[in-house]
Nucleic acid binder design. Sequence first.
DNA 1: TCAACAATAT
DNA 2: TATATTGTTG
Length: 636
Amino acid sequence: MSIALSEVQGELWAETTYYNLCHRVSLCQSMEVETLINRSISILVVDDDVVCLSIVAMILKKCKYQVVTVKHPMDALSILRIKGGSFDLVVVDVHMPDMNGFELQQVITNEFELPVVLMSADDKEGTILKGLDGGAAFFLVKPISVDDLRDLWQYALLQKKKGKRVVLEEIDCLEKSSNCNKKSLHEVGESVSSINENCYQHIKKEKSKRKSARTQRNADKDNSGNSAAPFKKAKVVWTNSLHNKFLEAIRDIGFDKAVPKKILDQMKVPGLTRENVASHLQKYRIFLERVSDACCRIQAADTSLGMLSQEKFGLQKQFSENTTNPRSLIHTANNGSSSFRTQQTRQTIPSGYEQAQLFLNEDNLGNITHSNENPLYKANQLPSTMKAKNYQTGSSAYEDISSQLMNGTTSTQVRRMLSGNPANRLSGRNLLALGTNGITMHATLNGNLNFLRDGFADDQCGTNFTQNNDADEASTLFTGHMNVIGKSQHDSEQCLAQEASSSDGFDGEKQCSAILSDHIDEETYMQLPSFVNGVCRGQEVDAMLDPVCNFSEFHNTNATQQSRGIGDLSVSFVNQGNVLPHQQQDHIGHTEPAEDGMSQLHNVFSYPTEQCKDEEFLELVLASSPYEDDQNPDGL
DNA sequence: TCAACAATAT
DNA sequence: TATATTGTTG
């Protein structure tokens, strides 16, 4: 019972009809029905030969399909990336310049999970087999006839079925909509709402009399067998693109003012109900809370690290206060002997939806190629267990990573996604996502949080934020192994990577400072006087924190917030109820109005990002990640 | 059995 | 509208 209420108009009708057809062969044979199905199916045709292209298009249109034609393979991909969900099938000519049909088919299959029908004048067995072996749904030999194309809808619908996306068992309602309503089914299909209305109206009427729909459904179940099949309302599947529309709507309205009805209006998705939105909003808020929780822990880590450095500079009292506070230091249940992986005490953001496909940040769109180096392609080469179970999620190369997190993309998946191609630069949002997904946390949320920084005083460290993000950038990696990787202020090559001996996370008895001093020589240490808060004098520091560190909660106070630099905004902005960076006084004495933590968090997940320029840094991070192998891809 | 989802009830 | 509860699903 799930229907993707994505951008695919008429999809519901098609899916429903599929079942209709399956169950009612006689209907299936009806030409009228077939035509109606076709009208709901969109086909993208790709052929560099304009004549052939127009002929195929003409035939398809004659068969009442919705047709879009494209001459260049890359254009086809662009269209699919933008409106991937709008198509049900792609017809591709094999012989094309730039990218041949086989290659294009591979990309489309992997990236969009759309059925691809190849066509070619080349009828050699080898060619045909190559196409079919490669995953093409069908191979058409030119010249193409009407008969060849008439039944293409079957491939589209089969794919839908394969994707488990389908299912609307309410056949009767469909018949009602088609019988009672003599308007074309395409028109019906144009709006999910109209379908829903048509399908559900008679139910709703009755429902109003009912005390509970559920009760009624149970009653229906009991009565089943002698009357119409019990009505089941189609589930809305929140695809990434739908979710993004949702995010956009919230952004436009403003997080605080965004309520289901307004969001619904803003989204302008036919068929979507206020209840759908409300339900999703509820889930989204829960999601943000989880992120917030996770970030609180990271904040604790950051703060502890900060205290660490302050201790070095004579603020031992402060530090010891924190260390003696059972809630403020790191506690590791198992001392030292167990492996990182067995520790597993971290709480990652629980996966929400089913496992999602790997996606790229929209920043990377330009980097996508059709070659096997395409990270998307690579991603799709993951073991099947890591692949999406839910194909609706598989079409969005440019989706917001937050939706992937909500969709349960695993930490390793995200990491892979980012590491698959060095060209995939990290955005702050990605990094936050990584953090919330239990990998690493980019404390400064490089680039992404410029809008947060803007309100800051920059006389002390704010300017530093934007000055040095190149080779001189210092980084720290703070993982469960207590790795500290960084580049000294003056020697970009110097790396402080050390690993705490047999330390899985922190030893409760071992103070952070001790761990640090164990592994960082004095000179280097002194070069990092203020890396604590993610801000190093004259340069930016990326503090990578892993929630796995098991930091206990640290309740940030106004004082500690103010004592900290700008660098910790990544972890404080989500800290509801705590003082936010915006609240910090700037050098002039103004106090920025507080912004709701959730709202800020939402912003992070919905605003466009800039790219992090430090690919080298990413390499370091990945090289040092405790999630080394893929045996346990989820790290769980 | 459980967790997560979306729908539904309050 | 926000939140709690429920049914469904994998």
